[in-house]
Computed example of a mutant assay.
Amino acid sequence: MPLLPGAEPFRHDGGEVGVLVCHGFTGSPQSVRPWAEHLAERGLTVSLPLLPGHGTRWQDMQLTGWQDWYAEVDRALRELRENCSEVFVCGLSMGGALTLRLAAKHGADISGIVLVNPANKVHGPAARALPVVRHLLPSTSGIASDIAKPGREEVGYDRVPLHAAYSFRRFLTMLDRELPQVTQPLLLLHSPEDHVVPPADSARILARVSSRDVTERLLERSYHVATLDHDAELIFEETFAFISRLSAGVGTASRG
């Protein structure tokens, strides 16, 4: 199955500091590629994988679940660890949730994490019905392109596959129990007006993690896909400043 335009994974070999960037549920690397490219242009080694079942058609995602998505970012993290002296992980929405689980499981192998509108729960009455409804309906309306900036669109599915949504819900329930294991420095940026993931999810995450070095930033002009929205440059600059503060290797990273 051919990839949607812009859904290709991205990789840049730079210096000793590596960054893994994770995209969101039903989205693709396109939604976070400017973020990845910004970091690559500043000499960092960057990996932005395409999650299984994404970037083609929503029917393909029906055959995947959280174990597949997590396995892919875990593989990409281990590859970065083999080639870099230290690694940071960044994620948007479900990518933020995957980032949190990597942080909980890999501990000191991750030097810091950056979350943009991270998901903590599948909301609404339909979420409680997913165990049954997923056997009756294959999909529901999509969640892509929640962007305030005119003319910007996210490359993602126009339908949400319900088997995958049910798997995502189970993943978030499990992850919530693991959040106290997250101890790394954390930068969290979130939108007060988000039509996909409410601000309550960010508040819950901040209340549950054990990180002592925590920075929170509001994205006042952006909706959910803030990495393509009015505050994108703020996200990119804050991310690089966060990594630079924590890593002595940034200043000596080569520009590839």
Score class of each variant (00 low, 15 high):
Ala148Glu: 13
Thr140Arg: 06
Leu137Thr: 01
Val133Arg: 00
Gly112Leu: 04
Ala126Gln: 12
His163Ser: 02
Ser139Leu: 03
Pro161Cys: 08
Phe171Ile: 03
Pro161Ala: 15
Ala108Ser: 15
Gly112Ala: 03
Gly124Met: 10
Leu130Glu: 07
Tyr166Ile: 00
Val122Pro: 05
Glu153Ser: 13
Lys149Ile: 12
Ser145Ala: 09
Glu153Gly: 06
Ala127Ser: 15
Lys121Arg: 15
Gly156Pro: 04
Ala164Val: 09
Pro150Phe: 13
Ala129Gly: 12
His123Ser: 14
Pro131His: 02
Ala144Gln: 14
Leu115Thr: 03
Ala164Asn: 01
Leu172Arg: 04
His135Phe: 14
Ala129Glu: 08
Leu172Asn: 03
Gly112Met: 02
His135Gln: 03
Ser167Cys: 09
Pro161Lys: 05
Val122Phe: 07
Asp158Ala: 11
Ala165Met: 14
Leu137Met: 10
Phe168Gly: 01
Val133Cys: 02
Leu137Asp: 00
Arg134Asn: 05
Pro161Val: 08
Ser141Leu: 13
Ala119Trp: 01
Ala119Cys: 09
Pro138Met: 08
Gly151Arg: 10
Pro118Ser: 07
Ile110Asn: 02
Ala165Tyr: 11
Pro138Gly: 05
Pro161Ile: 06
Met174Trp: 10
Arg134Gly: 01
Met174Asp: 15
Ser141Ala: 13
Met174Gln: 12
Gly112Pro: 05
Pro161Gly: 14
Ala127Ile: 11
Ser167Leu: 07
Gly151His: 11
Val116Leu: 07
Gly112Lys: 06
Ser111Gly: 00
Leu136Ile: 12
Ser141Glu: 11
Ile143Gly: 01
Asp146Cys: 10
Val114Ala: 14
Asp109Lys: 10
Pro118Thr: 02
Ile143Asp: 03
Leu115Arg: 03
Pro161Leu: 07
Asn120Gln: 12
Ala126Leu: 15
Ala144Met: 14
